[in-house]
Design a protein around this nucleic acid. Structure first.
Lengths: 156, 156
DNA sequence: TTTACTGCAAATATTTTGCAATATC
DNA sequence: GATATTGCAAAATATTTGCAGTAAA
């Protein structure tokens, strides 16, 4: 599936969701959706606010929170929280299954793909619980911090 | 391994960690560790503060945050964040591998054990990244909310 | 025309920080 | 005795809320 069709799928998903709930298809929601679809990887509210600002569009911080939450509710975004960082969001569609490696030392987040694991998780029977999406986050020490730690050990 | 030995293992883990860094083994750290080891399941700072208060021990909120973070740093606790809720903590030792099912409707968190998955994740080679612990959280709709939703559908 | 949505600012909630007092080593 | 840690309160940060004005339907 190409980028263009991802966008139109997302647009109809949103439109459908709004229609069912008698919610409105506002400029803000349209523009934000477009911006979301043009953003790869995960981003914070701040990142996103900056990107919108750079593209010359203004929305208030409240609307930003509301709208991203709306996108989470209709399954277009996933929200992520690592450690005590702020909330991050990432696109669901067009984002291949991946997991996050979070360094507990420097806070860097790396994506990794473990497709067999994904398959195993997705095919899992969870009884009466109906899964929508999942997050697998592995915390540990990244290569860079490990190197730093070892070299400081050697100095002593 | 019984509870008593879990506590002594935890105590030496902490003592070792503190010693290496020339940090002090304070009353607060000792009491909080004991309280943590006597707490099953996940808890928030507030839950924990209340529990301490009930047991007649007082620590400031700042020290509480510091100390729980210290326990996370030395591998005795895991910190968890679901949705936009506050941070929760859970013991690592003596807590069997488990995963979390979070209902995106009502916010309830249920624990589930998927041991084959755990094994798969733990045995995974992540290259230069050294894993310490991981969290697998599955978001979706719980049985109760699903029932509620279906019955409201039928009414229409 | 109705009412859902937005912007703004104020309110809340959570977590961190600065500093004087205290306790550990 | 030196200094790491605590308590407290204030600050910083993140997110939510209330309300008057605006814009979808």
């Amino acid at each position: 599936m190409n980028v263009q069709s991802h966008i139109s799928v997302a647009e109809s998903t949103l439109a459908e969701y709004l229609r069912k709930r008698k919610m409105r298809c506002t400029q803000e929601r349209k523009v934000l959706l477009e911006c979301v679809m043009g953003t790869d990887g995960h981003f914070t509210i701040d990142d996103f606010s900056q990107k919108l600002h750079d593209s010359g569009f203004h929305v208030s911080i409240g609307t930003l929170y509301n709208t991203l939450q709306l996108f989470v509710d209709c399954g277009l975004l996933r929200s992520l929280r690592f450690g005590s960082d702020k909330t991050r969001y990432e696109r669901v569609q067009g984002t291949p299954n991946h997991h996050h490696l979070v360094c507990t030392q420097c806070g860097r987040v790396k994506e990794t793909r473990l497709s067999d694991l994904s398959a195993m998780i997705e095919n899992r029977n969870l009884g009466k619980f109906t899964p929508a999406y999942y997050t697998l986050t592995i915390y540990g020490i990244c290569a860079r911090c490990r190197r730093a730690k070892n070299s400081s050990k050697n100095k002593k």
